[in-house]
Simulated scan of single mutants.
Amino acid sequence: MNLLDKVIKVGARGSLLSRKQVEEVFAEFSFFHPGYTFETTWIETTGDRDLKTSLRSLEKTDFFTKEVEALQCKGEFRISIHSAKDLPEKLQEGLQIVAITKGVTSADVLVFREGESFETLPFCPKIGSSSPRRDERVQSILPNCEIVDIRGTIQKRLELLVQNQVDAVVMAEAALLRLQLHQFPRVVLEGETALLQGKLAVVALESDQEMLMLFSSIDARFVKV
């Protein structure tokens, strides 16, 4: 096998979090297949451009994947890497999931400004949230809260917090860990989280048996003997 054979072309969203996710998949993959490199195309999706549409009715749609899937079907890259929870209910025809990683924690957390905590929240706090599931869990412990619908990257959501536009924000602990945002105090919200939250998905063409074979090494859906 020559060196070019060991370069895998990858497609992914261009956010900082997505870049960290690609690094995470590469690290896991390299443990089993040293010598390979990833050559990544960074893609802006509808979900990255449209910061006005609420995410509350968009779960399991292709809002964050449509452009990536379309380019992959055209053969622009062999695999794409996504937050598993962002995948649509049905992938575009011709694509298959070849791995779901073991990932990190699936927990949702309530995040506060540095130096603040649950105990320092005002009586009627403004809480940034992006899904009905998260709303319900916050309202169960803060019945007097006002829910503020939020959009944007993790950094944009935290800016709302730092700029005092909200008093706390709900987000996935996995995102904070991957971005190493340890300085923000938070508490875990008990209860159900989004399906596959914290895990990453690797997608390839259905016809690409080589990628299926290679990435089976990091596929946590099946118990390896």
Rank of each mutant, 00 (worst) to 15 (best):
V188A: 12
D5M: 03
S54W: 02
G11Q: 05
E93R: 13
E44G: 00
M211L: 05
T105K: 00
E93Y: 07
R113N: 06
S117R: 04
S106K: 04
E114A: 02
C124D: 10
Q165D: 03
R178N: 09
K6T: 15
E23I: 05
Q183H: 10
L181V: 01
I141K: 11
G152D: 03
C73S: 04
S217E: 07
E44N: 13
E136R: 15
S80T: 05
L195E: 15
L95Y: 00
S57G: 11
I127Y: 01
F77A: 09
T41Y: 07
A99Q: 10
S83T: 08
S30Q: 08
P88I: 00
F64S: 05
S57A: 13
I81G: 14
R221V: 01
L16H: 05
L189Q: 05
L158R: 08
L205G: 10
M1C: 09
V223D: 07
L189G: 15
A168S: 01
I81C: 06
L51F: 12
Q96T: 15
L195Q: 15
R178Q: 05
P132M: 11
C73E: 09
A174K: 01
S117A: 09
S217W: 07
I218D: 05
D48F: 05
P122H: 03
A99C: 01
G128F: 01
R13P: 10
G14V: 00
D48L: 08
A204I: 05
I154F: 07
V7I: 15
L55P: 00
R186L: 07
G11L: 11
P125H: 04
R186K: 09
E93A: 11
V166L: 06
V170I: 12
P125G: 09
F123C: 04
L87Q: 09
K9R: 13
R56F: 03
A172F: 06
T105W: 03
T53G: 03
T46I: 15
I97T: 12
A27K: 13
L161K: 11
M1E: 10
